[in-house]
């Protein structure tokens, strides 16, 4: 079961990476080329998925959208992991008062409805792609911190760590060389899972017009355009969503597969 999950998940992600890398080669048109002759033309031989309200080729825009989505997933999760691992490791390793304080901080952050937090930050920052990724990272590290803390706590008590400590190794060295590598599988799983989540968040923000700004093609913003022409151009609201669904599904399958594989191994 877990193998099938990993296989199908990595297949989807692999294809998406290829699509993103070779978007210029694979796209039949320039994603930003306006074509007034072909405004909102339904799927046809010339435009397989149809065109948008500026006559741009939908397939090309979705293909280029892959780039934004994958990038947001990787960078936002990278930021979340950086913060989450640092705070989780610190809390788990130091325990005591520092631990209590940091975990309280995590509790507090979790009180905020994520989307409320996102919106408030969006309102104060310019909506550049980097800022979007930063905001998503800043609002999604708490789960990572909790998992890392729990793992570090349990690993810290094991024999070999005590032994290394008795040998006189420094704290930094123990954490980075001996504890974190053991936490890596869990970090990997939660990271992959969060990537799906980050892509969902980005597309939702863009769908609300608060994320990636035009003319950069993003699946969410294409859907936003799609909503306004829903009654005359169904393809605009159907196809970009399938791309999001498949991408997130790919990450979720991969994460679940790795997770169950790790459980059955141990």
């Amino acid at each position: 079961m877990s193998r099938r999950f990993i296989l199908s998940g990595s297949l989807i992600i692999g294809i998406l990476i290829i699509l993103a890398l070779f978007a210029p080669l694979l796209s039949p048109y320039d994603p930003n080329k306006i074509d007034v002759e072909n405004i909102l033309s339904p799927p046809s031989k010339a435009h397989i998925l149809g065109t948008d309200s500026l006559g741009r080729d939908l397939l090309s825009r979705i293909l280029y959208g892959t780039r934004v989505s994958l990038k947001v997933g990787v960078v936002a999760v990278g930021i979340a992991l950086l913060i989450g691992v640092a705070i989780g490791a610190l809390a788990g390793y130091c325990s005591g008062r520092i631990d209590a304080l940091l975990m309280r901080f995590v509790d507090i952050m979790l009180c905020f409805p994520t989307f409320f937090l996102l919106l408030s930050m969006v309102a104060f920052l310019r909506p550049t792609v980097f800022n979007i990724m930063l905001i998503i990272g800043l609002t999604s590290w708490m789960g990572v911190a909790r998992i890392v803390r729990a793992e570090v706590l349990s690993i810290k008590e094991r024999e070999f760590i005590r032994y290394i400590k008795a040998m006189g190794a420094g704290d930094m060295r123990i954490v980075s060389k001996h504890i974190l590598p053991n936490v890596l599988p869990s970090i990997l799983v939660v990271g992959i899972l969060r990537m799906g989540g980050a892509i969902l968040t980005e597309s939702a923000l863009s769908f609300l017009g608060l994320g990636v700004q035009p003319p950069i093609p993003s699946w969410g913003s294409i859907l936003m355009e799609g909503k306004s022409v829903m009654d005359i151009a169904w393809w605009m609201s159907v196809f970009p969503g399938i791309a999001i669904l498949l991408t997130v599904l790919g990450y979720n399958l991969l994460a679940e597969g790795i997770r169950t594989l790790a459980i059955s191994r141990s």
């Binding site: 597309s203 939702a204 999001i244 669904l245 997130v248 599904l249 679940e256």
Partner: peptide, 10 residues
């Protein structure tokens, strides 16, 4: 899995 992956707005 589909439920987890499907954006609500979609």
């Amino acid at each position: 899995f589909i439920g987890f992956s499907l954006p609500s707005f979609y």
